[in-house]
Amino acid sequence: RGHLRALGQTTRIERSTVEQVRARIAFLREKTKEASNAKAFDFEQRLAEIKE
């Protein structure tokens, strides 16, 4: 801890806000979008089929 202080770094971790978390998720979502497009399976439709 001492050496961090010496480097002028705070040892206290910042708290993230919900907004930051949301933004991060949105960003990562965009980034991985193409990869997850394959999963277009429709759960709702399957349930609808059971009803029949």
Partner: peptide
């Protein structure tokens, strides 16, 4: 990996 066998995966869940 999900979605390789959609029918089978749903059926297993059911």
């Amino acid at each position: 990996t999900d979605g390789l066998d959609p029918e089978g995966e749903f059926e297993a869940w059911r």
